[in-house]
Amino acid sequence: MREKRTPRTSSRLEKILAEGHLAVTSECGPPRGSDGAVLEKKGAMLKGYIDVVNVTDNQTSMTRLCSLAASIRLKQAGLEPVLQMVTRDRNRIALQSDILGAASFDINNILCLTGDHQSFGDCKTGQNVHDIDSMQLLQMVRQMRDEGLFIGGDAISRPPEMFIGAAANPFADPFEIRVPRLAKKIAAGAEFIQTQCIYNMEKFEAWMQGVRDRGLHEETYILAGVTPFKTAGMAKYMRSRVPGIDVPDELVKRMSDTPKEKQAEEGITICLETIERLKEIEGVCGFHIMAIEWEEKVPEIVQRAGLYPRPDLEAPGQEPAKVATS
């Protein structure tokens, strides 16, 4: 087990990581409509099997119900959300304002992202904002939390108390700056990292080696991203169509060589094998399981990966002090 660290916020994710447990996170994409019940249904599927759930922010630039409202709904349904925020659609006023909105509902986790380009989505002719970038968003949230100050320098009454995360893609180019880039995100304020989904294990291991060489794994918590293939078609699509995802040919072949009706099972098997290998890598503090439109499989993956039951922070003796008694 890793050495314990002291949590700085009341985030459940931070507490679990600080205690030295392997954390399990997943994600929930809000619907393309206003039916909040969809979120409650997805949330109910995940509840108890994961520690926190990421709520995506108009992912791939498709317009959806907003991540802030979806986070609030999931919180009200008893899950702990990680509010994802991209810098594509909001300027610094809107970002700070939404962070305060989230903090007013005691949303304790945020993931700072740049966001996919709008040309991938349903508003290709729209403007993008990019007033600040994801590194600057990290710095901004840190300043709001740690100094209690807006970007403009004024004091915030009741500053947000958020555990602050960022994404890292060990597979994007140029490879030689992938570790320096992580160092830069940590310097900007990233306390936890969720990686892009991992299929190319050699490349990931090389990256983690570089991360450990600089001691970065002790300055942040790294959660390894995994996504099970549902079909061989999906593996092919991810290999050739999704920028920044690296799927080795042998995995595509393994999926294609499997009869259609067994492909889903094979996808889960590959995912479980990946998790087993990742557990062996020093510096991996948990898993971010992104089962795209396949949330119902998350409980099975968590159980079969030996990650169930999840740590019970409410249990006596396990809870760090300072939790409300009312």
Binding site: H130, S134, Q136, N169, D173, P174, I177, K184, G244
Partner: peptide, 19 residues
């Protein structure tokens, strides 16, 4: 394409932009 000042974003592949 995203005027990032601390880049690259995660979409940079083989020296090409994600868009």
């Amino acid at each position: 394409a995203k005027r990032v000042l601390n880049g690259p974003c995660g979409g940079s592949v083989d020296g090409r932009c994600e868009i």
